[in-house]
């Protein structure tokens, strides 16, 4: 029943079959309140995505121009060796980062879930790296992984002369140093997500599984972890976007080096679009990054949300 704010003048009208202006406003109010953020989102996110796409079809160099050259920039990108290195690195880095974080996070959460003493302190300890910015993480790990200053030097100083850990300066292994630093930063967060999920599981299910004769590892593997699919979903969403966003970590930890062996698409795009005055090429690389992200995340989103609806 719509709110009727009829005045005495309107008394003569028949019983309100149409809502009054005030009632209509009330119905529209939530939409009005949300409208500014929606407009901002639409404009600044999707609008600019579109503009980037337009730019990728032009020959913009230092400043945007609107001379259309079709897909020439994409062709140039495909022929660019550094881009292929960056893309492969993203797949390697992203895949390893997400996988290791999930496993490590789940493991830590399960261990913490055993109702041990000092759980609160341990939890804070593991979560702490998340509070640091990627720049700090990158710089700290750069020192740690530097062969002449960090771990290798320390272990050699202990007497193990033959110890080598020079991944940072090895073109083939540099990208894995990115994985190490990123996993260190983010696995605490994944652990917190899993811990919250574990705590939300009904105790009696575990008891039932115990009565059914399952050992504790079995219980976690068959019963508990499958219940945590929504947590895995959230974790993957967050980790994936961190992986793709990784710009500051690369800049701080390896500078893209040695050479450009540990470059990622984000640094590639920034370098070309802004430092090398090739906005057209940079936009093309940005669009390809977006394409890659959509290609993976959209099917995942779709399958998860659909299965959630059908229980």
């Amino acid at each position: 029943m719509p709110l009727s704010l009829s005045t005495s003048r309107e008394v003569g009208r028949p019983a309100a079959a149409r809502p009054t202006p005030a009632a209509r406003l009330q119905a529209w109010l939530p939409r009005l309140v949300l409208a500014p953020s929606a407009a901002v989102s639409l404009c600044f996110v999707y609008g600019f995505m579109l503009w980037t796409f337009v730019l990728s079809l032009t020959n913009s160099r230092m400043l945007p121009s609107y001379d259309f050259v079709g897909f020439a920039q994409y062709a140039r990108l495909m022929a660019n060796d550094r881009w292929w290195v960056a893309s492969t690195n993203l797949v390697l880095f992203g895949g390893l980062f997400i996988a290791i974080c999930l496993v490590l996070g789940a493991l830590l959460a399960i261990l913490l879930d055993q109702r041990i003493r000092q759980e609160g302190a341990l939890r804070t300890l593991y979560l702490y790296p998340m509070a640091l910015s990627f720049i700090v993480t990158g710089v700290a790990w750069k020192w740690l992984l530097n062969p002449s200053l960090g771990l290798e030097a320390m272990v050699r100083g202990w007497g193990f002369e033959g110890f080598r850990f020079d991944w940072l300066v090895n073109p083939d292994m540099a990208v894995y140093t990115l994985v190490i630093a990123a996993v260190w930063q983010a696995s605490g967060f994944v652990m917190a997500l899993f811990l919250a999920g574990l705590r939300g599981i009904d105790d009696s299910i575990i008891k039932a599984a115990q009565l059914d004769g399952a050992s504790l590892p079995r219980i976690y593997w068959r019963v508990v972890l499958p219940c945590l699919r929504p947590v895995v979903f959230s974790a993957v969403m967050i980790l994936a976007h961190i992986a793709i966003k990784s710009f500051d970590l690369v800049v701080a930890l390896t500078g893209g080096g040695p050479g450009y062996a540990s470059d990622l698409p984000a640094t590639f795009m920034y370098a070309h679009a802004f430092n090398r005055a090739q906005i057209g090429l940079g936009s093309a690389s940005a669009m390809l990054m977006l394409g890659g992200v959509l290609a993976i995340l959209v099917p995942y989103l779709y399958s998860e949300l659909r299965s959630r609806k059908h229980g």
């Binding site: 299910i205 008891k207 115990q210 009565l211 399952a214 019963v223 499958p226 219940c227 699919r229």
Partner: peptide, 21 residues
């Protein structure tokens, strides 16, 4: 003995069915 070794079965108040199976 552990619950599994006792050869008993239990029906819980909240049913405790495994949601993912």
């Amino acid at each position: 003995c552990t619950p599994a070794e006792r050869d008993i079965a239990m029906v819980f108040q909240s049913y405790a069915l495994y949601p993912s199976m």
